[in-house]
Amino acid sequence: MEINFRCNCPFTSALDIIGDKWMLVIVKQMLIENKQTFKDFTESDESIATNILTTKLKQLEEFGIIIKTKLPNNKKSNIYLLTKKGLALTPIIIELGIWSDTHLRDLNPNIANGIGMELLRTNKAEFERGINQKYREKLATINYIKNSDFTS
């Protein structure tokens, strides 16, 4: 797939890849909500249409942000996993959460406000470490951590 970037600006180039309204939602679902199958994504609160989900998953795979594979014990179902490049989006997801918590509560008073948000407010570094550790443990349990896409 050829990617047509609008210009040579690094910010705009990043937005050309992840600036679509669904791309970071899917990454967030994988990272924080443990979504990994097509069915998992379709059952999420965000209600992404299946045709859009299919397109976005393919794009994320083509960009090297996720891989599509199969579980060792279930060769029928596809699962989607974040690559090292995908995990590197963690700080962006976290900063969006902090920005939303700070600036959007007046517009959306129903924004989540549980233990996770409290940790995010009080110790962003610990929140990020916890997310990354949990995801890497998940990868290790399904024997994909050895794949060079996931090693640091």
Rank of each mutant, 00 (worst) to 15 (best):
M1V: 04
M1G: 02
E2H: 12
I3S: 11
N4Y: 11
N4A: 03
F5M: 06
R6T: 13
R6A: 05
R6V: 15
N8D: 04
N8K: 14
C9F: 07
P10F: 11
T12M: 01
S13F: 02
S13D: 08
S13K: 15
S13E: 06
D16F: 12
I17L: 15
I17R: 06
I18P: 04
K21N: 08
W22Y: 05
M23T: 11
V25G: 11
I26R: 07
K28Y: 10
K28T: 08
Q29E: 12
L31W: 01
I32L: 07
I32W: 03
E33Y: 14
E33Q: 10
N34F: 13
K35R: 13
Q36F: 06
T37Y: 03
T37E: 04
T42F: 02
E43M: 10
S44P: 15
S44W: 07
E46G: 12
I48N: 05
T50F: 07
I52G: 01
I52D: 04
L53P: 02
L53R: 06
L53A: 03
T54Q: 06
T55L: 12
L57P: 09
K58M: 11
G64C: 03
I65D: 00
I66A: 00
I67V: 14
K68S: 02
T69P: 04
K70M: 00
N73G: 00
N74Y: 08
K75W: 01
S77H: 03
N78H: 10
N78C: 02
I79E: 06
I79R: 02
L82C: 06
L82E: 05
L82T: 05
K84N: 09
G86W: 01
L87P: 06
A88C: 08
L89D: 02
L89W: 09
P91V: 04
I92P: 07
I93A: 01
I94H: 13
I94S: 07
L96N: 15
G97R: 02
W99V: 10
T102K: 15
T102S: 13
H103F: 04
R105L: 04
L107M: 11
N108K: 07
N108W: 13
P109A: 04
N110T: 12
N110R: 15
I111G: 02
I111F: 07
I111D: 07
I111N: 05
N113K: 14
N113V: 04
G116Q: 08
M117W: 03
E118H: 12
E118K: 15
L119H: 14
R121Q: 08
N123M: 07
N123P: 12
K124W: 05
K124H: 07
A125P: 10
E128F: 09
R129P: 04
G130W: 05
I131T: 10
N132F: 01
N132V: 06
K134V: 03
K134Q: 06
Y135R: 02
R136N: 14
E137H: 15
L139Y: 03
A140I: 05
T141H: 12
T141I: 11
T141E: 03
T141A: 10
I142G: 05
I142N: 05
N143Y: 11
Y144W: 09
K146V: 08
K146E: 00
N147V: 04
D149I: 00
D149T: 01
D149G: 06
